[in-house]
Each structure stands twice: as structure tokens, then as C-alpha cells.
């Protein structure tokens, strides 16, 4: 187990607090940015309405005009554009998104959308790993296998996974299957190559030592190669899982749009940018949380590794 020094904890906290601080300054300190004005009282300006947002230039031009003409000047507050909501608004949005019922009956709650996204990721990644990891280990262990499989995989991985969207829908229908397929395609080919390379990095001396102890073929593979590369495979998988999330957004747009992506596009259409931010951050939180849990589990699983070897 790695013990973190208090100073290190502070730095880790700072890595999150710093961006939050910058965001807060931009949001709450008016003269930093605040390029727009929201009208509280239109005065005598005919096209102003209360609650309307105009640029500062328009506002001051109209104020000048009204005072020159002896009319009532409009009143307003300086604000940031709608697409940059303040932290507290996003926080409220995150809370209300979980507590308010969707506007239409056919629509889903935020947590339902999120859960849907998670299941799509889970199946895409699991299916890929079930085939990709064993295949990669075999390629990394047996040279003929590597020569037979890897060149094609190397070629295929350059195909952008989203390009298969239309094809996947045509074959697999419009629901979750094509989405899972996109995540699978995006993960699988990279996974085979990465796992094969990781396997090849196993210290050849361990293999030689095992051979002089009578291990060969299957026993060599299962008793030496697999346990020897397991911690590194685990680390690879954590990284690959992160990549799978990036394919999710494209995957959810094909066929019938679904999951968290549907929620985000929907909210953006209504200009509820606080909801958009809330959803994006939720994805970040889920990703970070899974990775932290996986890292902790990894350290538990691979106790035999010296502490400095685990990140």
C-alpha cells in the first residue's frame, strides 16, 4: 500500500480545487469577463425585454441613446454567456436532474440515461476483453500466432470505429447492439496489440528458469506467462476502459440516440447548459471513481509487487 504524505494529499486536492477556483473567479468576479448584460428593466428601449441577454456594447449604446433623448435608461446586470453557467448552477442542475421528473413520459430520468450508458460500456468492454486479452496473450507468447494475427489487427485498428456505425445499425438493428459493437470495435483491436506487447515484455529469464524446472507448453503459459503479466494487463485494461468512454459518445448517437449522450444533446437543444455541464461532469466523476476503485483493487490483488511498482 502506498502511504501518501500530507503534502501529497494537498497537491492532489489542489489539482481539483485549482480549476474550480478559476471557474469560480470567472463566474463570480464581474470584471474578469462577464461580456453580456441581462436586462432587469427594459426602460424605454423598445426591443429590450426583462430577462433578455444582450452584449455589453449593445447595452451601453442603448443606455447612451436613451439618456441623450431624455428617456428612461434600461437597467441590467453583467453576466457570463449562457453556455458558461456558474458552479452553483451546475451543482443545482446536477441535483435537480436527479430529482425532477422528465418533461415527457417517453423521456428518461438522468440516472436512467447514465445507467444505460454504463451498461453499453460494460458489455462492449467485457466482450472485447473476453476475446482480446487471451488472443493478445497468445500473440505475445507464440511467435507464429503473432505473425498470423497481428499484421491484420494492426491494419484494422486504423479504421475509425465510428465509421462502422451505419453498417452496425444495418446488421444489428437500432437499439443497443450496434452501440456495443462500436465500443467493441474501438477497444478490441487496440487491446490485442497492447496486450501482446505487454506479454512480450515479460522477463525472458523467468521463462528460462521455468523451463529448467520442467514447465513447458500449457503449464508455462498458465503458471508463468499469465501470472507474470497479469498486473500489467490490469493496468492496460484501466487505460483501455478510459478509451472506451470516448467511443461511447459516438456509439450513443447512432441508431436511436440514447444514454447520457441523448440527455446532453437534448438539454443543449433547450439551452439548459447547466444540465449539459452537470452531465459531462457526471461522466468524469464516474470515470474517475471507477479508476480509483480499480487502482485500489489492483493493489489488493497484486500484493506481491513492490509498492513502487504500482502507480
Amino acid at each position: 500500500m502506498i502511504e501518501r504524505l500530507p503534502r501529497e494529499r494537498l497537491l492532489i486536492a489542489g489539482s481539483f480545487l485549482l480549476p474550480l477556483l478559476i471557474w469560480s473567479i470567472i463566474s463570480y468576479v464581474p470584471f474578469v469577463w462577464h461580456p453580456n448584460v441581462v436586462i432587469t428593466d427594459p426602460g424605454d428601449v423598445s426591443w429590450f425585454r426583462a430577462g433578455m441577454e444582450v452584449t455589453r456594447e449593445q447595452f451601453s449604446a442603448e443606455t447612451e441613446k436613451t439618456t441623450d433623448d431624455g428617456l428612461i435608461a434600461p437597467a441590467g446586470e453583467r453576466v457570463n454567456p449562457v453556455y458558461l453557467p456558474a458552479p452553483h448552477k451546475v451543482a443545482t442542475a446536477m441535483y435537480t436532474a436527479f430529482t425532477t421528473e422528465p418533461k415527457r413520459r417517453s423521456e428518461k430520468w438522468l440516472h436512467e440515461s447514465l445507467w444505460h450508458s454504463i451498461t453499453v460500456i460494460f458489455w462492449g468492454f467485457t466482450l472485447s476483453s473476453l476475446i482480446g486479452i487471451p488472443l493478445g496473450v497468445l500473440c505475445g507468447t507464440y511467435r507464429p500466432m503473432s505473425l498470423l494475427i497481428e499484421p491484420f489487427v494492426e491494419f484494422f485498428r486504423y479504421f475509425p470505429a465510428p465509421a462502422f456505425g451505419a453498417l452496425a445499425v444495418a446488421i444489428l438493428g437500432i437499439h443497443d447492439a450496434p452501440k456495443i459493437a462500436i465500443i467493441f470495435i474501438g477497444t478490441f483491436f487496440q487491446q490485442v496489440l497492447i496486450v501482446a506487447n505487454t506479454t512480450r515484455l515479460l522477463d525472458p529469464m523467468l521463462i528460462e528458469a521455468a523451463k529448467t524446472l520442467g514447465a513447458e507448453g500449457r503449464s508455462l503459459l498458465l503458471r508463468v506467462v499469465v501470472p507474470g503479466v497479469l498486473p500489467n494487463l490490469y493496468r492496460d485494461s484501466r487505460i483501455l476502459l478510459g478509451w472506451a468512454w470516448t467511443y461511447l459518445i459516438v456509439a450513443e448517437l447512432i441508431g436511436t440516440s440514447s444514454g447520457i449522450t441523448w440527455f446532453i444533446t437534448q438539454q443543449a437543444r433547450y439551452k439548459n447548459f447547466d444540465n449539459v455541464f452537470a452531465a459531462i461532469m457526471l461522466i468524469g466523476l464516474i470515470g474517475l471513481l471507477t479508476d480509483v476503485i480499480l487502482a485500489k483493487t489492483g493493489r489488493r490483488l497484486f500484493r506481491w509487487q513492490p509498492a513502487e511498482a504500482t502507480p
Binding site: M205, L206, A209, T212, L213, G228, F302, W304, Q305
Partner: peptide, 21 residues
């Protein structure tokens, strides 16, 4: 004509299996 347990080998480099006690 190949390695066999009737010929044990100890190397200069430490080659214990790190995942085994």
C-alpha cells in the same frame, strides 16, 4: 536437446517468480 528438470539452473539475475511466496 532442450531444458529439463534433471538439469537445474541458478542464474546471476534473480529469477524467483515474484508472484509466488
Amino acid at each position: 536437446d532442450g531444458p529439463s528438470p534433471d538439469r537445474g539452473m541458478v542464474f546471476q539475475k534473480y529469477t524467483l517468480f515474484p508472484w509466488l511466496t
